[in-house]
Each structure stands twice: as structure tokens, then as C-alpha cells.
Design a protein around this nucleic acid. Structure first.
Length: 232
DNA sequence: GCCCAGGAGCCCG
DNA sequence: CGGGCTCATGGG
């Protein structure tokens, strides 16, 4: 099987096994009393798009449940708002996102991102050339490759494949890449062998995360991974 | 007590 | 350019 076919086959099998994941979870527009990010919604409002961007920062190297609490707390304090984030003092912001861990760092990051978005609003980034938008995002202190690509894919809806530690772990497990493969290398593998499809890229990344939770979170990684027997 | 979670920046050779 | 260190809470 070619790599192209393998990558597509993996996607189809994961989708069949787990069903659509509906990433990225966002709080419904009308739900302001008891905010909670829900899977399977379309981020239609500007606030929902901003929630995804802030969420991408807050969830860095953190369990989603811990990040989710922080996002809900931001929401309740009317901080899914660029200007309010810029206004609030670091110490107070830190305490609000405490549950997500690295709260001092992440408070600074949220401010950096907000200042950036004031200069380059979401709508402006959306119209921009794909490579240019990614480059600008990466220039923000606190936005690395995975966070930039998550924003590109889930907020700006650009056809970029999001790579994370899990993606690599699974691909190494299936002997599709070497364990020293770089971020860009892995991203190229997906983007050069698959149709550039935003909807599919969103699902694929989410499915890989789900697959990791089941088969690649405890060593030895991928021991009972059902893909191993089917992907040759 | 340990390990890990939907990473990134900085420093150092 | 790459490896090691730091940032930190909460659940298993």
C-alpha cells in the first residue's frame, strides 16, 4: 500500500471505530449562564472563534478537563474578550486559569495573543495568505507550531494538518515515520499525501487524539492498537 | 509518592 | 539545529 492509501485507510478505520469527534468544542452562542464547550458545533460567532484560540493556548500540554475549567472560568469573568484580557492584571488572570497549570506563563500568553489579535483581527488573518497567517501566528511568544496550526485549522478554517506528540507516537508505532521525524516532516507527510480538506483534517487530528487515549497513553505504546494488524 | 495530559521558550554545546 | 530544563494543576 502507498503511504497515501495508508493515511486514508487509517483515517477511515479510525472514523468507523470512534465516529465523528466534532472538534473543536465551543460554548454555544446563547448559553451565557452556564458556559461549557460542546463538541459538534460550528464556531460561527467571533466570540466562539476567540474561545478556540484562547483554548488552544490554555490546553497546551494539559489535560482537556483542566483546560476546560479554565475556559469556563474565563467565560464567566467575561474574559473571552481581547480588550478585557489586555486590561486585567496578570495575577488575577493567573488565578482565573489556575486549573490549567502553567498559569503564570499562560496568563502572559493570553495577553500576547490578545495584543496580536488587536493588530491582526481574526477576519484579517482569515483573508490572508495561508503561509503569511501561519508565520504571523508563530511570531507570537506563546504560539508554537501545534498551537498555530490548531488556530489555522479550527478557527481560521485553513487546510493545515495539526501535528502533536500523539500523531508522531502513532505513526512511529505503525512504522510510517522514524522516531526522529520533525514536526514539519510529519505535517508534510499528511499534506502531500491527502486531499487538502478542512473538514477531514479537523476530524483526523481529533481521531488520532482519541486513538492515543485508548491505545498509546501507557507503555508499551500501541500494544493493542487494532490498526497494526490492518495497515501493512 | 509517581506519571502524564490536546507545548513552548530559553539556554547551551 | 537539537537536547535538556522549566513552567504547574489535577486525575489515575
Amino acid at each position: 500500500m502507498t503511504k497515501e492509501n495508508k493515511l486514508l485507510e487509517i483515517y477511515n478505520m479510525l472514523l468507523k471505530e470512534y465516529g465523528p469527534q466534532g472538534w473543536w468544542p465551543v460554548t454555544p452562542r446563547t448559553c451565557n449562564i452556564d458556559p461549557k464547550p460542546i463538541y459538534g458545533l460550528k464556531a460561527s460567532s467571533e466570540k466562539q472563534k476567540l474561545e478556540i484560540i484562547f483554548g488552544a493556548v490554555v490546553v497546551q500540554n494539559t489535560a482537556w478537563k483542566n483546560a476546560e475549567k479554565a475556559i469556563i472560568n474565563l467565560y464567566k469573568n467575561d474574559l473571552i474578550d481581547i480588550n478585557n484580557i489586555i486590561k486585567i492584571d496578570n495575577e488575577k488572570l493567573s488565578s482565573i486559569i489556575k486549573s490549567a497549570g502553567y498559569y503564570n506563563e499562560k496568563a502572559k500568553k493570553l495577553k500576547n495573543v490578545s495584543l496580536f489579535l488587536k493588530k491582526y483581527p481574526i477576519k484579517v488573518l482569515q483573508k490572508m495568505d495561508l503561509k503569511k497567517a501561519r508565520e504571523l501566528l508563530l511570531s507570537v511568544n506563546g504560539i508554537g507550531p501545534e498551537t498555530a496550526d490548531s488556530i489555522m485549522l479550527y478557527t481560521l478554517e485553513k487546510p493545515i494538518f495539526v501535528v502533536d506528540a500523539y500523531t508522531k507516537r502513532i505513526l512511529v508505532g505503525l512504522n510510517l515515520i522514524e522516531d526522529d521525524a520533525s514536526y514539519d516532516e510529519i505535517q508534510d507527510l499528511f499534506m502531500k499525501n491527502l486531499k487538502l480538506d478542512v473538514k477531514m483534517f479537523k476530524e483526523y487530528h481529533a481521531l488520532l487524539v482519541e486513538h492515543t487515549k485508548r491505545y498509546y497513553s501507557t507503555k508499551p505504546y500501541g500494544e493493542y492498537c487494532f490498526l497494526k494488524h490492518k495497515i501493512i
